[in-house]
């Protein structure tokens, strides 16, 4: 299948051309954050404090790696379920976040925020953490070190494989894909 090469951080031109179902290879810099780091970032914003990174045009990868073996940049590094970050994501998009990588459905407020702030949601393959780790060339903890696997990491990635799930136009691969292959029980001769 055809793939589109994109650079991270993102820009508006890139985001505008992506459509649900596109397969991309991401090269550049992305940041990890999952449940605990999101909670902390939003609490910081609530208190009027600065975030540990400038989110403008950045991509956040919902991921907490396994420890790196000697000689490796990172351990297994697949996505976690994105839905748990739904309560925090619109707030971060308002701060300039342009991309999210995870797996699983997003709720309407997140999809609405993606349209409003022009941000894209990508899925990486859940449970392919060993394979994905080969596309991460460098990983450094830059904030919330005490959170261990949940700390914020700066990742340098080369040809990181992802699929566009939600674009800025309301496209949704999960819904479109399911509708395409769904067969009703009646057609199967079942009740």
């Amino acid at each position: 299948m055809e793939t589109i090469n994109i650079k991270a951080p993102l820009n508006e031109t890139t985001v505008e051309k992506l459509r649900a179902g596109d397969q991309v290879l991401i090269t550049g810099v992305i940041y990890t954050a999952r449940d605990a780091a999101h909670k902390r970032m939003v609490e910081a914003l609530d208190k009027g404090e600065k975030l540990p990174l400038d989110l403008k045009n950045q991509v956040i990868y919902y991921m907490g790696p396994s420890p790196a073996k000697p000689g490796h940049a990172i351990g297994s590094a697949g996505p976690t379920t994105s839905g748990r970050m739904d309560v925090y994501a619109p707030r971060l998009m308002a701060e300039g976040l342009k991309g999210m990588i995870g797996k699983g459905d997003r709720q309407s407020p997140v999809k609405d925020a993606m349209k409003k702030y022009k941000a894209v949601y990508f899925a990486a393959i859940g449970g392919a953490g060993a394979l994905i780790s080969k596309t991460i060339t460098k990983a450094d903890v830059i904030a919330y070190d005490d959170l261990g696997a949940e700390a914020i990491r700066r990742l340098e990635v080369k040809d990181f494989p992802a699929t566009v799930i939600n674009d800025i136009y309301g496209g949704d691969l999960y819904q479109e894909g399911k509708a395409k292959y769904r067969v009703s029980p009646e057609k199967l001769g079942l009740k």
């Binding site: 797996k103 699983g104 459905d105 899925a123 393959i125 859940g126 699929t163 691969l173 999960y174 479109e176 894909g177 399911k178 509708a179 395409k180 292959y181 769904r182 067969v183 009703s184 029980p185 057609k187 199967l188």
Partner: peptide, 10 residues
């Protein structure tokens, strides 16, 4: 027959 498919991509 639900159509969800591998990783939910259909």
């Amino acid at each position: 027959a639900l159509g969800i498919g591998p990783q939910g991509y259909g």
